[in-house]
Design a protein around this nucleic acid. Structure first.
Lengths: 343, 343
DNA sequence: TTCTCTACTGTGAACGCTCACAGAAGCATG
DNA sequence: CATGCTTCTGTGAGCGTTCACAGTAGAGAA
């Protein structure tokens, strides 16, 4: 592409101008700019005043050219973009990351890898070192772009445990298993004993961990496992509806269902009500995510809230640390049971 | 902030390496990279082969340092971020802009101006020339950040007509007035004559233009204007409900309402149904936006669709043109009537 | 031949910054 | 008094490009 500088903008002051203005050398100005070690208070003061007077802003390109880093990070979304952009949690995540990065003066580059062409371009862009690190939102495991970045040694922080990638990848995730435990304990505390579950797909962290939490709590409560009470969906509303129907057909006197997503839970509610059952009197329903679907449902869903705001700040913290040379890290954040009307 | 290069990444090949590999000079490689004018086919071929072999990617920082442009643009959202991030149309816009820019190999920097601190930082960042232009999403008119950018001569394209800013600002917008005309004509064609309107706030383009379209069509159809049929809301569902109640109190035999947003239209439906009126038999309701609220409503809303995908690509096109030296431009795009069950 | 014109190629300088290094000054220690 | 150490400062080099300019070769015209 061609971009020519359009008129109107004066060329900004350089570090040279500031140095002259402050009566010091370029080196001293640079030192003030980067931490201010080994500068006398008098010089620092003089430089700062000159910066204020001239309105100087560092030229990041020149700095990047010599340091080799870009002081910017990419926010990479691979796979089905519609689904993510429609997900309010994703929006919270994107917003949170942008703001957390802004606090460190690090710009966020939004990268959407939809087509193969985009994947190639983005991979090249990142591995060429045009960003220092990547915040990764990838639904399915074993993402090729992510794998390539990991192999290239690009600092990477995933959102949710990346199943496919090696253990060398940092990630930040909600404690799915513990959230599931909380919900099932809650259902038990209500006196329910024939508790069904509609899990997510077996290749998603949510699917695996949430089901595991369910099983753990039932086992430790001495409730005997009944595999007829376990079905799985694909996080869609329709699959929740179908799942609930299968459960009802197998275990008509089921008195509670733990559903691995709010959207599926909406489908479960529909199926239950169509079968003439009252919620929560006959069957209690617990969701997961605390999405808008939870309050849009009737009755409003009891659900598990994931701390998306904290997830975003933690992702940024871990990524910046890793860019700074620290080792990859995994952060698991606690969830919260939100009690509403469906239990 | 401090970022040190973490191990693992080799330093990438430079234009020098490519030149040596291809047996030509840096200048020739550079010419191939930028358009390929004044290079012999043989040299071009040789350079391209060398680029492929070495996996060379241009160092944008070095290029930017000398050209003075960054080859990147900012996507700036000022004002209430929650509202925008929850708006699916905003998500389509953000996604569309990112993809359209990616096709030109231009990265998009997401900038959220929430706090005053962020506003300052972003303004400095942009006016320092760290982006070549800005895609602006600003709800209210006379935004101070936008005004400052305009004054600094930064190429700017707004989404929706910016009322406060001077005429020197490019913008891309849907044809609000024509959309409103279509809807009111549609209501007239259904035989309705006592058509109410719930407009948006008078300081929003949507509010002003949509009301104007309504008035125009009624006038040209020879229906006498009745100011009792005009109320305004703030785009919220509650304000739609309140507006409908006021309309019904003033004109009980109103037989249609044109509502300036789908969300408000939901409120209008609620109020109508509570008053015992059937939609569309007694009162036809037309919305605006074609948001998910439109299909979530019952009955599903007839509404006006704004071409958000085209708006995003046009914004990018106009911005890049302006960065390339062209004059600011205004683009108005046609809307579309989406007929559903509420009329 | 000689000159001009076109098509192409190479070279040095510059963009604005950081970094390594050398040096100066002040102060304590041998 | 020399020596070392610490704190501070200035200087030159160089990061990887593009750009202006100079230069070459070949074709065609005078």
């Amino acid at each position: 592409m061609t971009m020519s500088n359009t008129g109107g903008r004066r060329k900004p002051p350089t570090i040279h101008d500031v140095a002259r203005e402050a009566g010091v050398s370029r080196g001293t100005v640079s030192r003030v700019l980067n931490g201010g070690h080994y500068v006398s208070p008098a010089a620092a003061e003089s430089v700062n005043a000159a910066i204020r007077r001239t309105g100087y802003v560092v030229n990041r390109h020149a700095r990047s050219l010599i340091t080799g880093r870009s002081d910017s990070v990419g926010f990479l979304l691979t796979e089905p973009q519609e689904r993510f952009f429609e997900d309010p949690n994703f929006n919270v995540l994107l917003r949170g990351c942008t703001q957390a990065l802004a606090a460190h003066d690090v710009p966020l580059l939004l990268m959407l890898a939809g087509t193969d062409d985009e994947r190639r371009r983005i991979t090249r862009y990142i591995t060429a070192g045009h960003v220092d690190g990547v915040l990764l939102v990838s639904s399915h495991s074993g993402d090729p772009v992510a794998e390539e970045l990991r192999a290239a040694g690009v600092p990477l922080v995933a959102c949710g445990k990346p199943i496919g990638l090696g253990s060398k990848v940092s990630y930040v995730a909600a404690d799915d298993r513990d959230g599931a435990r909380d919900m099932v304990r809650h259902l038990l505390a209500l006196g329910r004993r024939r508790i069904g579950v509609v899990t997510g797909p077996p290749d998603t962290p949510g699917g695996v961990e949430r089901l595991a939490g369910y099983r753990e709590v039932l086992a430790e409560a001495g409730v005997e496992a009944d595999e007829r009470l376990v079905v799985s969906g694909d996080y869609s509303r329709a699959s929740g509806e179908a799942g609930a129907e299968r459960l009802l057909a197998r275990v008509p006197d089921m008195d509670a269902v733990f559903v691995a997503s709010d959207l599926m839970a909406q489908g479960v509610l529909t199926a239950l009500q169509r079968s003439g059952r009252r919620v929560p009197e006959d069957v209690a329903v617990g969701g997961f995510d605390d999405s808008p679907a939870a309050v849009a449902a009737s009755p409003e869903l009891t659900t598990i809230r994931q701390p998306w705001d904290r997830i975003s700040t933690e992702m940024v913290r871990v990524l910046l640390a890793q860019i700074g040379g620290e080792d990859p890290a995994a952060v698991i954040l606690p969830t919260e049971l939100v009690k509403r009307d469906s239990t």
